[in-house]
Design a protein around this nucleic acid. Structure first.
Length: 463
RNA sequence: UCCUCAGUAGCUCAAUGGCAGAGCAAUCGGCUGUUAACCGAUAGGUUGUAGGUUCGAGUCCUACCUGAGGAGCCA
């Protein structure tokens, strides 16, 4: 009895299929043929690996099949044969091969290593390359792991808004959202009159869902957001995209220590989940992208993350004897070279740096008793740098207002944020986890443009 | 935005200031078990763009464009 089979099912339950006739549909990854026998490697998208289809000149349209172009879509009927001793554990002896959609000879993906730069130029085809097949399945599985982690712990998933009227953190340039005619905008007293814009005020794409998440943390206790965020900064590095995804949990009745515990548990959960669910993908990444990747992740999952007070971090840097391009100074914060030294050389594992100077951190972070630092932490991981930015939030109304005034912020746009402090505004804490940076950490891929389906960076919006 | 490096065939790369080439891919042919298959042949070029130096520029100079890496900013 013939049945449809996914390639994943064939690999995961091979014994159930041996000797059976099955039907598959997928795309030709490679094909090679002589005048009497040929081999197709078929990928159906269900699994990282391909299945080998064998066809010989008993097939009525053998000659046409042997000339199939790479990337052609076909459906195949055939019998599963065990092939002990061969590179693949089993193969399919085809009794029929039907062309579903042809391909052309100028298909750019070859059976050889391509540069990442070239593959970025063909972003519409690169998911068919092994590297991206691995990366984007890991990305999907990691996203799922995050949702499971939080739901198992009773967190409520909040869909925070994409369009916002406030510059949430005072951080980063924002993309303006408008329906005004840019060639002839309405004006009033020499300036653009945004009261005539769609929302009757200035509006932007969000740079963070945090402030809105706080609203819901003070109703549901534990919440998280998981969605796109936008930064219009003119930054061009391997770690920055203009559009990226962020996970922003917010925990009420929680302080910085509770926050840190949650972060560490989340990251270990994701690592374990991905290693368990994507063994083929991780094996490939370990072999071709970063040697020792799996070992590195397993160690991170088992070891306790390091913790270091910021003031002590500066002292370590100053005593290191290293010739840094930027001399470590307490009031200047940590430069990339400082973070790398601490994380990759001193501790050699994920590292929480805590209690940063208030003057280099955002207004909403809770002031410590020393009056010069805030209850904030960055999680630094080897190879990536800052993976998570976290803080306990300033829940004391008067302290928050004083801080905002000191920074010259207008209070009016934040009226609701301040009001949260008036009505049962308990201590609470939260963090932002950059999802693309997490995927880089999990896959060993070193450029953010290669872990996001359609990357947006300065001057680059291809697809 | 700043610094550095690089742009030559579809891809990856050669070419001392002196005839623009190879491997892979493609196309055609051969081959009965391949798995980055193999063997033979064919085709493929405004050397990123615009100027300049020179008898002569892929090569040297200037500007610009594009890409990459690093820094700043950040997740």
């Amino acid at each position: 009895m013939m049945k449809y089979a996914s390639v994943k099912a064939l690999y995961r339950n091979t014994m159930d299929f041996i000797g059976q006739e099955v039907h598959l549909e997928g795309w030709v990854r490679t094909i090679r043929a002589s005048n009497a026998i040929g081999f197709i490697e078929l990928n159906d998208g269900s699994f990282f690996k391909n299945v080998q289809i064998v066809f010989d000149n008993d097939l009525p349209d053998f000659a046409a099949t042997a000339k199939l172009a790479v990337a052609s879509a076909i459906s195949v009927t055939g019998r599963i044969i065990a092939t002990p001793g061969a590179k693949q554990p089993f193969e399919i002896k085809a009794s029929s091969v039907t062309l579903e959609a042809g391909s052309e000879s100028d298909y750019p993906l070859q059976k050889k290593r391509h540069t990442l730069e070239f593959l970025r130029d063909i972003a519409h085809l690169r998911p068919r390359a092994n590297l991206f097949a691995a990366v984007f399945r890991v990305r999907s599985v990691a996203a799922h792991a995050i949702n499971i982690f939080f739901h198992e712990r009773g967190f409520v998933h909040i869909h925070s808004p994409i369009i916002t009227s406030s510059d949430a953190e005072g951080s980063g340039a924002m993309f303006r959202v408008t329906t005004l005619d840019l060639l002839n905008p309405p004006q009033r007293e020499g300036r653009v009159d945004y009261t005539q814009d769609f929302f009757a005020k200035e509006s932007y794409l969000t740079v963070s869902g945090q402030l809105e998440a706080e609203i819901f943390a003070l109703a549901f206790k534990n919440v998280y957001t998981f969605g796109p965020t936008f930064r219009a900064e003119n930054s061009n590095t391997t770690r920055h995209a203009a559009e990226f995804w962020m996970i922003e949990p917010e925990l009420a009745f929680a302080d910085l220590d509770d926050n840190i515990e949650n972060i560490e548990a989340l990251i270990k959960y994701i690592i374990d989940y991905v290693l368990g669910a994507c063994p083929e993908e991780m094996e490939f990444l370990d072999q071709f992208v970063e040697k020792g990747l799996i070992e590195r992740l397993m160690q991170a999952s088992q070891a306790k993350f390091a913790r270091l007070d910021y003031t002590e971090a500066i002292a370590i840097l100053q005593k290191s004897g290293r010739d840094f391009a930027y001399t470590p100074r307490w009031e200047d914060g940590l430069q990339t070279e400082h973070e790398r030294y601490l994380c990759e050389e001193v501790f050699q594992k994920p590292l929480f740096v805590t209690n940063y100077p208030k003057d280099i951190k955002s207004f909403y972070m809770r002031l410590n008793d020393d009056d010069r630092t805030v209850a904030a932490t960055d999680l630094l991981v080897p190879g990536i740098g800052e993976l998570v930015g976290a803080s306990q939030r300033e829940e004391r109304y008067e302290v928050l207002v004083a801080r905002m005034r000191a920074l010259g912020m207008r209070l009016e746009p934040y009226w609701w944020y301040l009001e949260l402090r008036k009505y049962g505004g308990v201590k609470h804490a939260g963090y932002g986890l950059g999802f693309e940076r997490l995927i880089m950490y999990l896959t060993g891929v070193s450029n953010v443009r290669d872990v996001i389906p359609c990357p947006r960076t300065v001057g680059n919006l291809k697809i």
